[in-house]
Design a protein around this nucleic acid. Structure first.
Lengths: 172, 172
DNA sequence: ATCAATTAGTTTAGGCTTAAAGTACTTTCA
DNA sequence: TGAAAGTACTTTAAGCCTAAACTAATTGAT
């Protein structure tokens, strides 16, 4: 997704030279979002391509496995859907397919009969370990153009942005 | 998507206090990507929800209209698919649906008989204008937690990251 | 001028994703 | 304790999206 409003690359727009904007002018915010979006899409497309090429695995599968890997005792489908930031129905379908491949297993919750716990099988753990190793290198490779300090600055700023978005979404 | 590897929130990790990493340790890069991803997903989900609620329109429709709005003379499907960062086949389907709603129109390319030009209809232009106005406010609202200088710093850093990703993707 | 390579767009098959409605179970609280 | 509200998960319908195979037209190299 790239909302196509990418503004002129006027290099002059920084904190020093920026003139007070007209009220209701949100070009800077828009520009920032578009840049975030484009960057994210670039990375995601490339990761998807490499996962398919190297491991014949779809990105949502990797995502699901990554979640389970951190929780050796497994988790419920609801928790999974929250962590993956997708709907419950989506997770139901994914779980079905990963079960069929014996990458994950599923058991009834002990006390809540509505609920299931899914976790990685041994096969799933092995496969994920191989993928995670390369995946880390891909990311490091793509991010290699940034210095140490740019890194930590960007991480910090994104944390702030995330918090800002969260609070705006929360109190609608 | 949220690859579930979110690391412990050790606040101590900045340029000053960071100790040299072990070779092959890419935790910082991973953390940065996960944060980018989560932020993007939050924004996208919320925009999608609001577009549906206020205008009964899907995000890809808005995206496509935003592209066309900038090019009053229209553009080819290929150009559209490049700008939207999706496949040609995807665009074919979207264009079909938007044509049916008379939001866009389509004509043969003058000299290249393989090619079509699509552009917004008057109806499409009107509808997009209404949406774009609110959309800008939503974004500004979500990004409101950042100061002017944080804004420009983040914009600049994301530009660098985007360039870094692009060059890594290019020379695979 | 010709034919191989490329490009524009479509189609197909299959998985992804959502929103909304539905089933089964649990919790709450009057 | 028992009805109402809430939660966990599934199903459905419809659209999104990709990769790959396909058709038709153009370009380029000899």
């Amino acid at each position: 997704m790239d909302l196509g409003m990418e503004l002129e690359q006027s290099a002059a727009l920084d904190a020093e030279t920026k003139i007070a904007e007209a009220p209701g002018d949100h070009k800077a915010e828009l520009r920032l979002w578009l840049r975030l979006l484009a960057t994210n899409t670039l990375i995601e497309t490339e990761i998807r391509r490499r996962l398919r090429e190297r491991f014949d695995v779809a990105l949502p599968w990797f995502d699901l496995m990554a979640q389970l890997e951190r929780k050796p005792h497994g988790m419920t489908l609801s928790e999974l859907s929250q962590r993956m930031m997708v709907t419950n129905g989506n997770v139901t379908g994914l779980v079905d397919r990963l079960l069929a491949e014996e990458i994950i297993s599923r058991r009834q919750h002990k006390s809540d009969r509505r609920s299931y716990i899914v976790s990685l099988t041994e096969k799933g753990r092995r496969q994920f370990a191989r993928m995670a190793k390369e995946h880390e290198d891909w990311i490091a490779d793509m991010f290699g153009g940034l210095s140490h300090s740019e890194f930590s600055a960007l991480t910090k700023l994104l944390g702030k942005l995330k918090a800002s978005v969260r609070s705006a979404v929360a109190d609608v």
